[in-house]
Write a protein that binds this DNA or RNA. Sequence first.
DNA 1: TATTGTTATACTCTATAACTATA
DNA 2: TATAGTTATAGAGTATAACAATA
Lengths: 154, 154
Amino acid sequence: MEAAEDAGREAWMLLFQLFRSNRREIAQLHSEFDLNPAQVHLMLHVNPESGSPMNELAESLACDASYVTGIVDKLEKRDLVQRQPKPDDRRVKLIALTSQGGEIRNQLMARVSQPPAFIAAMSAADKETLRDIFRRAAVDLPSPGADWMHDLKR
Amino acid sequence: MEAAEDAGREAWMLLFQLFRSNRREIAQLHSEFDLNPAQVHLMLHVNPESGSPMNELAESLACDASYVTGIVDKLEKRDLVQRQPKPDDRRVKLIALTSQGGEIRNQLMARVSQPPAFIAAMSAADKETLRDIFRRAAVDLPSPGADWMHDLKR
DNA sequence: TATTGTTATACTCTATAACTATA
DNA sequence: TATAGTTATAGAGTATAACAATA
C-alpha cells in the first residue's frame, strides 16, 4: 500500500523530531547525576541482588571490556559499586551496588522510566493506543536482546 | 488516571527498547557513508540552495562554533561542501554543498527517512494510527526548534 | 564594542594490543 | 589453550580560551 508506506515514513520522521525535543531532558539527567550515558547504563544493568560479572556488563553496554574497567573504577571511587570476587571462578569479578549505589539506581530508574514531555502530554487514549502498538511491535521484532530491561522491572 | 499513567510509562519503556534495537542500523549508516553523526547532521541541515552560515549550523547542531570549523574542514577536504563568502557580511562564511555533496545529501536523506525495522514491520493500520498520534504530539509540544527538518521536506 | 570564524589546546569517550591471573 | 580483567596507549569527538577580521 502506498498510503501505508507514507504513513510509516511520516511516523518515523515525526518520532525522530519528538525524540530530539527530548535531548535537553536527557542531558539534564546526566549532569544532575554526574554520570555519563555508559555509567547510567551500567548502573541500571547491574543485577541489584547478586551483582553482575564485568564481561556481561561489557556485552550489554556493547563496549570493550577495558572500557568497563574504567567505568567501574570511577563508580567505585564514588562508592556506588564494589568489585567482589566470584567464589567459583576467581577470574571473574562481580560488580555489586553499594547501599548508596542502590539508592542512586532507584532514583535513576524512577527518572528514566518517566515518560518524556511528548508522551506525557498525550491524551489517555493516545497513550494506551501507543502502548498497544509498541507491545505488538516489540513482539514481532527480530529483537536481539530486546529484554535488556528485564532488571528494570523489579 | 492511574491506568493512563501506566500506559504512558510502558509506552515509553517499549519505545526505548525499540529504538535501541535500531542501534545497529544507525551505525551501519555512519560507516557506509564514512560520516559521523555530527557530519550527517550538518549535511542534512545545510540549506541546499543558498548554503548556511556556520553559526547557524552550530546552533542547529547544538555544538560549539569551533567544532563546526573542524567538521567543515573535513567535509571540504572530501569535496562535499565549500566555504563561500557572504557578500553583505564578510565575517560570515556560507557553507554550500558541492554537486557531489548534493548527491550524498540526497542519498542520506533517502536513508534517514526510511523507517526502521520496528516501524516497517507494523501493520498498515498501526502505521497510520502511529502517524496520527505523533502528528498530534508534534503539534502541542513546547517544541524548541521542532521544525528542524524543514529542509528535509524538499 | 560585539560578532564570526579560526587556532591551539585540553579533556572525555572509547578501542586496540599486550599483559596477568585463573581455568 | 582459552577466558576475565587490567594497563598503557592512541584516536576520535568536543569544549574552552585567546585571537583576527569585520561589523
